[in-house]
Design a protein around this nucleic acid. Structure first.
Lengths: 195, 195
DNA sequence: ATAACTTGCAACATCAATGACGCATGTTCT
DNA sequence: AGAACATGCGTCATTGATGTTGCAAGTTAT
């Protein structure tokens, strides 16, 4: 049972269990990617056999976890409407939204390269949107005309990844973190006066 | 035999084998951290039992691998003389040297948190040097007086990590990469004219 | 209430990775 | 050349993770 997205409406019971397992898997696996199913089960507060009843194999569990996180990820990017908002606003919004997801679902999102077509397509879609956003940033003059957009995007990803290692408690801190990422991306950490 | 650094001078034979295993381990494990000893052995062109003869356990192998890489890492930083060179020069030199090591020993360096005291002390030492270097950069005016040095250092690490995913073939490309890292760190990727 | 479903528990089967030997066949060193 | 050592190969033991099944007890939905 690899849980094909829409089998049948799950019983309230089951839904709770599945979520508990996914959340536990995220926590446990992010701490130790080689953790066993038993550790996940224990963290979820269920028996090991229950995990196996919901997810046929370890592979299936990780697949479902990736799919779940990919869904959230996609929503986070969607919600920022990066195609229609002014690019600098979009950059900030996307950053803030993605950070929110990435904190707490860090393992599921990028830990290991997922081959599930569903997840891959989400990542590809987000990648394309990101590239378009950066192109718009360049055309708007936020980035120089000769900017290496691929490098820019990779630096952006890396900064988000780095920022996500801190888990701010308040919403204000979250916003401050997003601001810092955008700021560092665009202006670096050096003194502006020089050169 | 966890290969305590200086047991006795190894036979020419053995030395070659050990190196082959370490190099193979780096390649195989960076592709798949959960790879088996057999895959490592195969990649090294030796029998699985030979790997076990040289490294008592999987743990020991990874430990030795980390120690080996830590050694190179330390040398790379040392060679830049970051305490005595002008800080901006040192920043560039350290970047270039570390990149050289990190490309090709990426797994062994940061993949998983090593608890070996030897490795930890190297990382701690490098961390301290890095902090001092950044403090000097701030005092020299390269970084603003109110710069968050911890964030700066983390961004620096992240950029190096990102840059190391490209493996330039020529020495010139290596230097260009280091330049790009330093440049992005200090100035970001945005247009300089604005704000 | 009751049928359908889920869970925990315990037991079992499997399987792959790890690690250890002994021995015949090379290599290395002196 | 000859002693000392390393390697490949086959073999075996162990262990831990994975996955399955049956059943009694508890939930959910209608």
């Amino acid at each position: 049972m690899a849980l094909p997205p829409s089998t049948k409406p799950l019983r309230a019971d089951t839904e709770r269990t599945v979520r508990a397992i996914l959340e536990a898997a995220e926590r446990v696996l992010s701490a130790n990617p080689a953790a066993t199913m038993e550790q996940v089960a224990e963290a979820a507060g269920v028996a090991r056999t229950t995990v196996h009843r919901r997810f046929a194999s370890r592979e299936a569990l990780i697949g479902a976890l990736s799919a779940w996180a990919a869904q959230r990820f996609h929503e986070a990017v969607e919600a920022a409407r990066p195609e229609t908002t002014p690019p600098d606003v979009a950059l900030y919004q996307v950053t803030a939204n993605v950070l929110r997801v990435k904190i707490g679902w860090g393992f599921a999102m990028g830990a290991l390269p997922t081959d599930a077509p569903e997840v891959a397509s989400v990542h590809a879609d987000v990648l394309a949107r990101c590239e378009r956003l950066f192109a718009r940033l360049r055309d708007t003059g936020v980035l120089p005309p000769d900017a290496d957009l691929d490098w820019a995007r990779r630096v952006y990803y890396a900064l988000i990844h780095e920022a996500a290692t801190q888990a701010p408690d308040t919403d204000a801190a979250m916003d401050a973190l997003a601001t810092r990422v955008v700021d560092t991306l665009l202006r670096g950490i050096g003194t502006r006066t020089t050169t």
